[in-house]
Design a protein around this nucleic acid. Structure first.
Lengths: 257, 257
DNA sequence: AGATAACGCAGTACGCCGTACGGAATGCGG
DNA sequence: CCGCATTCCGTACGGCGTACTGCGTTATCT
């Protein structure tokens, strides 16, 4: 898992990966029939990842989950990194696209919600030390449509790209925080209160109210008791899109230059 | 590296981790002198991570880098996860804090710039599949001061927490994108142009201008030729803080309620 | 129909990884 | 000076990704 995303599309490996993403070759005529399909392998890997966590994802476990030998997977996929790229693209495949009749803001919000839902459903996406999306068809479909929606603002192209990145970044960050909380809660089987309770040792032993007066104050006033993570991230999205809206209004004249 | 951040602070391991972060025990009097210090181990690990990349970070390599046996590291550190938490906290140690005489916006911008600088200097921070900051002293110092700066706005505590998270998220996302680009460029030894050149096979073979009209349009108008990543992320930060400023102005009366 | 070539499948093995264990060397407290 | 706590490290175990190889299967060719 050194390079979850191939860096060299020009190389033969890169070409193979692209072909796998865009144009999976039909099973050859000669030889025994394949016992699995590429899709089954990818979906099986996603199931293992959701069930066991991305850290426990291994070729051997995926193979076992699918009822084949470990090395048989390499008939379908060049390696683990490539399988992971296929998993990511597959996760994007389920994303719905907004109604194009809606105003741009509603469309962007729809995209953000879909991304949020995707991260919730496939928590391993968050934990993946992924640093560049694979150039897969479904990933690009989502990107394309987000750009299309943002472009409806009429903002200059450079700004559109930046705004789209901003939205993606925000959803990712919020999802990371939320998934963390729920994951900790579910894995340890403790409520959020219990969780903080278990940290009591820290607060008592090392946390100094003199060294951290602001945090203490925020804590005392309940600033950390965030009711619902949904509200928190939608607040951020709203703030962000308000800014974009202002940009649109302000640039209405300037954009012409 | 299953759980980069211990989930159970109540457990003995959690306590040991906290003690390591906050109150590293002095070397015992009995027995042979330690050949290293905890700090040397942590810094050595950071050097290995920056040099070889976080994926290549291993206990054996850190030990070799420090000129000791692999298992000797376990005298200083309970395990790799704990070492990694110490690395993170150590990275935060170098962050400067803003001048408190400055207006809140300048202070928050200073924080964002320091975070950006930190991510640039320690690129492994980006690639770490880190999902919760360790409760280390330096991490908390930075958090505390950011909260303090945001609290100067006079916004309600819940909003302060959200805004701080928004800023952190944005810098992280922008740093991730920037580090990706420069890292690809430096590792493969190709310029950005060469990089895109090498992908020509993709654009020619699979990219369809009919399927991706918006991306094509943005590309043609140079929307993706982002001159400088610094400008891009500062644009986002400005947009974000503009929103906060509006919130402050609007809430000037409402905050009293 | 039989031979052949292409191909799927899986067992074994290699070199990594994190780290548990135990023994040798070391230097302070009694 | 002795005893023992402690450091250091060689060995080893289980798990990982995957290269290689041999075997069995099956569509095509003669």
């Amino acid at each position: 898992m050194d390079e979850p995303v191939s860096e060299q599309w020009g190389t033969p490996e890169g070409q193979a990966m692209l072909q796998l993403l865009w144009d999976p070759p039909p099973p050859p005529t000669r030889g025994p029939k394949q016992r699995l399909t590429l899709d089954q392998v990818v979906v099986g890997a996603m199931e293992v990842a959701t069930e066991l966590g991305v850290d426990e994802l291994s070729m051997r476990k995926v193979a076992q989950h699918l009822g084949v030998g470990a090395m048989s997977l390499y008939t379908y996929v060049p390696g683990k990194d490539e399988l992971f790229e296929l998993m990511i693209d597959r996760a994007y495949a389920d994303r719905a696209l907004p109604d194009r009749a809606l105003p741009w803001r509603a469309q962007v919000e729809f995209h953000a919600h879909e991304a949020w839902r995707m991260y919730q459903e496939h928590r391993w996406l968050i934990r993946s030390n992924l640093w560049r999306m694979p150039l897969g068809p479904h990933v690009l479909d989502a990107q394309e449509d987000l750009y299309r929606a943002v472009l409806l603002t009429g903002l200059p192209e450079t700004t559109v790209v930046r705004v789209a990145g901003l939205v993606e970044s925000h959803v990712f960050g919020a999802a990371r925080a939320a998934v963390t909380d729920t994951s900790v809660a579910s894995r340890t089987g403790m409520t959020t209160d219990d969780y903080w309770e278990s940290r009591a040792g820290f607060w008592g032993t090392y946390f100094s109210t003199e060294r951290f007066p602001t945090m203490t104050r925020i804590w005392e006033r309940g600033g950390f008791d965030d009711d619902c993570p949904e509200q928190a991230w939608e607040f951020g999205l709203a703030l962000l899109l308000d800014g974009v809206e202002r940009l649109v209004q302000a640039g209405g004249a300037a954009a012409r230059s």
